[in-house]
Amino acid sequence: MNTAYIPFNVQIAFMVIGGLLTVASLVSMYLVRAKPERDYSELRLRIKTWWIIVAVFATAVLFNRTVSVIVLGLVSFLAFKEYLSIVPTRRADHRVLFWAYLAIPIQFYWVWIAWYGLFIIFIPVFVFLFLPMRMILIGENQGFLRAIGTLQWGLMITVFGLSHAAFMLVLPAEANPAGGAMGLVIYLVFLTEINDVAQYIWGKSFGKRKIVPKVSPNKTVAGFVGGVLTTTALAVTLAPFLTPLTHYESLGAGILCGLAGFVGDVTISALKRDIGVKDSGSLLPGHGGILDRLDSLTYTAPLFFHYVYFLHY
């Protein structure tokens, strides 16, 4: 790693993230000591997980393009595997699923060589046309539509959507003098995660009226509005340091990430409710919960990408 290639603002960004987590760790340690009668193991575990996520994310963005593509490709693979492990699949589709997995390295290869044209059509055109054909060759009609639908939806959110985060790293760095190649991804991931946390805190503090009671009973209107406002405020504040966005454009980016993050979150919730899984993390302790962590990003990554791509690239 050559630190000269890491823009000053990105170094600051990682110091701030590290600082925030250190504060969170210290507060949780203080709480454990101050109130021994209460159980903080959940909070401690969450903070520990955040450290790991930040470490993986730092590895993904700070080294070079090859490392970025491999790490983000692996994250995508794990998310897709988790998805396929919780949705029902047909035994007859064994080889079809193999082909679906194969789409992941190919999609990330397009990212690696920065071939935008193929990156953007490979999954929605070629893979989506190929997989049904492969299924038909096997010849199992029973449940065909359901099988192909679940498979393609999984590829859409866990592979196609997330690969947009990786493609931001290969966009020309010159177009983003403040944040360099990695500025956009840091901005996106930071806003998406803060949006989750802000929605949770606003909802806990002021939330009364439920916003989507059937899908996600814990989500409230106050949480949603507070989250979007917080995210937008941060988006406007951080944009000059990490992105090429102007003030008004960053206002739009903030609202977009706030809204899309919420939709991504409840979409994965709806998926889990349909299957009957409450928390993919409790289903797979120690491994799982990757989908739970990436839910908002499955929407914000492609939408924010195309917003910035349209405006500046």
């Binding site: 693979f77 595997k81 988790e82 396929l84 492990s85 699949t89 035994r91 064994h94 080889r95 699923l97 193999f98 997995y101 797979l284 491994h287 799982g288």
Partner: peptide, 14 residues
């Protein structure tokens, strides 16, 4: 489900 008898392709699952 990952590698049934008679298959040679490993398909990842939890």
């Amino acid at each position: 489900k990952c590698l049934p008898k008679g298959e040679v392709l490993l398909v990842p699952f939890f």
